[in-house]
């Protein structure tokens, strides 16, 4: 296996893991889990409260 192959596989695994963990952490913090920043949405704090209540 060439070094570039190892680098590509490692980078892909790391990226997938980071995005997945990031989404879980965001969700636990009560932020949007879709990856969007919904701070400008009229119902933003409602989503947050709802998630906090559930957790």
């Amino acid at each position: 296996m060439q070094p570039i192959e190892i680098i590509v596989i490692a980078a892909a695994v790391l990226f997938v893991a980071l995005v997945t963990i990031g989404a879980i952490v965001r969700r636990k913090k009560g932020k949007s889990s879709c990856g969007c920043d919904c701070s400008s949405c009229g119902g933003c704090s409602a989503c947050k409260e709802r998630k906090e209540k559930k957790s």
Binding site: F15, V16, V19, T20, G22, A23, C34, G35, C36, D37
Partner: peptide, 18 residues
Amino acid sequence: LKHFVKKAFTIILVSTIL
């Protein structure tokens, strides 16, 4: 724009990799 690009480089890119 911000939301779309962010989504593209997170969820969508992860999906394409998978």
